[in-house]
C-alpha cells in the first residue's frame, strides 16, 4: 500500500526517524514492514515498527546501503510503497516485572513495545557505542538505564552488564540488538531461568514466509531446524535459538 511521508529526520549520525501515514492494519509490537526503497534496491527492505498511534507509523533506521541512503533523503509528502505489518511480534504477558534491553539501532522495535507492555514494573536498558538516541522517548515509560562503551553518556560498558545485575528482579526480558548482545541475553536469562524473547534480523526477500531465505536455526527435540525469521519470527524465545 501507499503511505505518505509526514516527517523524516536525522536523530544521530546516520540514524533517522521517519513517520508516515498508515491506513493499514494496526501493528503489534515487534512486527515489521517491508518498504520499497524507491527503486534503489530490487527487493523491499524490512524495518521494525518503532511507534504507532492514530494512523501514524514511525520507523527508526540506520543508513547502511543504497536503499536506506535513499530513504534518508525522502521528504514530507513523498510516497512510500509498503507491505505489512509482518511477523509475529513480542508475546506480551501482562502484569510482569519486565526488562527491555536494546543495543544500538536495535532499540527500534522496543519503544512501541515499552508503550504496550502493560508491566507491573518496567526497566529499560539501552546500550550504545558512543552516541545515544531516542532515550528521551523511553523516559517516563519505565526506569531507564543507558550505557555507552566508553562511558561518554550513562554507565560505561555493555548493556548486558546491566542485565546481569537485574536479572534476579524481573520475570521476563525482551531484547533487540546486535547478535553478540542477543547471545548474551540468551545465556544470562537461561542461567537465571527467566523468560526471554529476542527479535532477530536476517536478510529477507519476500518477508511473508514463502522464499525461505531468512533462516534461523532453532533447537528441536531431535537436533535442529530452520525457522523463518519473517514469519515464525522475528521474535523468538531466546532458549530455542541456536546461534
Amino acid at each position: 500500500m501507499k503511505a505518505r511521508v509526514l516527517s523524516n529526520r536525522g536523530i544521530a549520525s546516520s540514524v533517522y526517524e521517519m513517520t508516515f501515514e498508515w491506513k493499514g492494519k494496526k501493528p503489534h509490537p515487534g512486527q515489521f514492514l517491508m518498504i520499497d526503497c524507491q527503486g534503489k534496491t530490487f527487493l523491499k527492505r524490512p524495518f521494525s515498527v518503532n511507534d504507532f498511534e492514530e494512523e501514524k507509523m514511525t520507523i527508526l533506521y540506520q543508513v547502511r546501503g543504497e536503499g536506506t541512503k535513499n530513504l534518508s533523503q525522502m521528504k514530507e509528502g513523498d510516497i512510500l510503497e509498503i507491505t505489512g505489518p509482518h511477523g509475529n511480534g513480542f508475546e506480551i504477558l501482562e502484569g510482569k516485572r519486565v526488562l527491555i534491553v536494546g543495543g544500538g539501532v536495535g532499540i527500534a522495535p522496543l519503544l512501541y513495545l515499552a508503550k504496550k507492555v502493560k508491566a507491573q514494573k518496567l526497566y529499560i536498558a539501552l546500550g550504545f557505542k558512543r552516541e545515544t538516541f531516542l532515550v528521551e522517548k523511553f523516559e517516563g515509560l519505565g526506569e531507564v538505564v543507558v550505557t555507552t562503551e566508553e562511558g561518554s553518556t550513562g554507565r560505561k560498558g555493555l548493556v548486558t552488564s546491566v542485565v546481569e545485575e537485574m536479572i534476579g528482579e524481573v520475570d521476563i526480558v525482551y531484547g533487540c540488538g546486535p547478535k553478540p548482545m542477543l547471545k548474551a541475553l540468551q545465556e544470562i536469562s537461561m542461567k537465571a531461568n527467566v523468560l526471554c524473547q529476542i527479535s532477530l534480523e536476517e536478510k529477507m526477500a519476500c518477508g511473508i514466509g514463502a522464499c525461505l531465505g531468512c533462516a534461523c536455526k532453532v533447537r528441536e527435540d531431535k537436533g535442529f531446524s530452520y525457522k523463518r525469521v519473517c514469519r515464525d519470527g522475528p521474535v523468538f524465545w531466546a532458549e530455542e535459538v541456536l546461534f
Binding site: 536478510k203 533462516a215 536455526k217
Partner: peptide, 14 residues
C-alpha cells in the same frame, strides 16, 4: 533442512 544462512544476496536486478 536446507542450507545454513545467509541464503540470499541481492545483486544488480536480481
Amino acid at each position: 533442512e536446507g542450507n545454513p544462512p545467509p541464503r540470499l544476496f541481492e545483486t544488480a536486478s536480481g
